[in-house]
Structure formats: structure tokens, C-alpha cells
């Protein structure tokens, strides 16, 4: 029984790494075949070497820490604002009529479209960077909270009115718990959005610290190994965060859909 579980786990881990290993192999072959000069595409071991160098000095971990913190602050603000705004539009048809068209119009502007305006207004500061990240999280969280609140089953609302629950009690006892799966989806989408606009924020609003800054620095020095190392860092960290959030969402879901065997 135990051996079985171990095999499964090993298989899962192998599954995760199988494709990247194949990709690295092709990359190496590509270089060995002489399709590219080392100047434009360094061999994989150069990138590995770069990682070793980067992590041997404390600055790279510091860059990562700064990026993570930036995303967390922006994501937190965006989540809170998106949740409240989505709740408001979900609860009130009037609020939806007033805000929804504006919201849907403004949502069409890609984050990068805001950069010139935001730089002119706020300068090259931490505030606009965090702001962009929070707005990116704000959209999916607003949308999913809204639809979750709107789609609370009529039967539950009727039950609440039988017991005389109104206002905040109704929101707390029925609406939020019923909308929670949808809100959780919004939160995980929001986190993914925050993480992906982090690069926009760090590359276009220049700063001394952050993973995006390192990628930008790699470009300035024509250090392609550094650029690739930066991209891999962003990808791996983003993936780790997604998995973490999925686990949290699953834990939330587990509270309501328990397997019948216990």
C-alpha cells in the first residue's frame, strides 16, 4: 500500500520535470548543432552557472523578496477592494447599473496602457508599482465576487427571509458563504494577474530592486544568461504561488464537499 503511494508521488514529480528536461536537452542540441552563437543563446550550463552566482550572493534573494513583497501588498489591496466592490455590485442592482459599464470599459485598457499616465502622475515610485499590481488583481476578484453574489441560489435567500435575516446578517450567514467558491476562484486568478503584471511594473517603472529589474539589467548588459535566469525565476515562483493558492482554495472547498466515506 505504502509502496504504491510512493510510486505515485515519484511519478508525479517526474511528470513535472519531464518536459523541462526534454526542453533543456533540445536547447543543448540546438547549440551543439551550431544553430546559434553563444552570444545570443548561451548553453544551459551557463544559465545554471548564472543561478549559482546569483544565489551565492545575498542580493538576488533580496531582489526576489522585494518582488514577492510588492506583489503581496498590491494583491492584498486589490483583493480587498475587488471583494468590496464586487459585493456592492452583486448586492445592489442600482450600483451595478451605475458602475458596471464604467468598470467593463476601463478593464479593456491593458495594464501597460496606464504606465505613461501613472508615471507622469506618480513618478518612478513604489506607489505606482503597487497600484498597477493591485488593479490587476482587482478586476478578476471584482468579477468573480459579483457573479458569486448574484448567483446565490434563490432557495437560500428564501430560507433566510423565513428566518428574518436581513442586511449584514444575511450577507454574513448566506451570501458570502454561498459565494465563497466563486470568490476563491477570483482570488486565485487575481494572484496570477498580480504576478504577471509585476514584470510590467518593475521593467517600466524603473527601480533598483526586484526580479524584473534584474531582467532589465541583463538586457542593458546584453547578459542573456541573466535574462533567462530571471525569466525562469519568475516562472517558477509564479507556479509555486499558483499551487499554494490552489491548495488553499481546495482547503476552503473541503469544508463544504466532504467525501461520503469517513
Amino acid at each position: 500500500m505504502k509502496r504504491f503511494a510512493f510510486n505515485k508521488k515519484t511519478k508525479a514529480i517526474l511528470g513535472v520535470f519531464a518536459f523541462p528536461i526534454v526542453l533543456i536537452g533540445l536547447w543543448q542540441l540546438f547549440i551543439l548543432a551550431g544553430f546559434s552563437s553563444a552570444r545570443f543563446l548561451p548553453p544551459p550550463y551557463k544559465v545554471l552557472q548564472k543561478f549559482v552566482i546569483l544565489f551565492s550572493e545575498p542580493t538576488y534573494s533580496h531582489h526576489i523578496a522585494v518582488s514577492l513583497q510588492r506583489v503581496m501588498i498590491g494583491f492584498f489591496i486589490g483583493t480587498l477592494a475587488g471583494f468590496l466592490f464586487g459585493l456592492l455590485m452583486g448586492l445592489s442592482k442600482t450600483a451595478e447599473k451605475i458602475f458596471a459599464p464604467f468598470f467593463h470599459a476601463i478593464r479593456q485598457v491593458p495594464m501597460i496602457g496606464w504606465i505613461p499616465l501613472i508615471i507622469m502622475w506618480f513618478g518612478m515610485n513604489e506607489l505606482p508599482r503597487v497600484l498597477i499590481i493591485s488593479v490587476a488583481a482587482f478586476y478578476p476578484i471584482t468579477l468573480n465576487t459579483f457573479s458569486g453574489v448574484r448567483n446565490v441560489p434563490r432557495e437560500y435567500l428564501e430560507l433566510a427571509s423565513v428566518y428574518g435575516f436581513k442586511g449584514l446578517t444575511l450577507i454574513k450567514k448566506i451570501i458570502i458563504p454561498a459565494a465563497l467558491p466563486s470568490i476563491a476562484t477570483g482570488i486565485s486568478l487575481g494572484l496570477a494577474m498580480s504576478w504577471s503584471v509585476l514584470m510590467v511594473a518593475e521593467i517600466f517603472i524603473q527601480t533598483a530592486l526586484g526580479v524584473g529589474t534584474q531582467i532589465q539589467r541583463g538586457r542593458d548588459r546584453f547578459d542573456i544568461a541573466l535574462v533567462i535566469a530571471g525569466i525562469i525565476t519568475v516562472g517558477v515562483l509564479g507556479y509555486a504561488m499558483t499551487v499554494l493558492v490552489q491548495k488553499i482554495v481546495q482547503a476552503v472547498e473541503r469544508g463544504r464537499v466532504i467525501s461520503t466515506e469517513k
Binding site: 432557495e155 437560500y156 430560507l159 427571509s161 423565513v162 428574518g164 458563504p177 454561498a178 465563497l180 469544508g255
Partner: peptide, 20 residues
């Protein structure tokens, strides 16, 4: 006038809240 605690209701669907 409106629902009250003097009346209880059982619906056709049990209408239990799944998160409780």
C-alpha cells in the same frame, strides 16, 4: 405579516446549507 417564528417550514428540497 411576513414570516415569523410562530411558523416553521419544511420545503421539498431539504434546503440545508452545505457549508454548515
Amino acid at each position: 405579516i411576513g414570516p415569523g417564528s410562530d411558523r416553521g417550514i419544511v420545503f421539498q428540497d431539504h434546503r440545508l446549507l452545505p457549508w454548515l
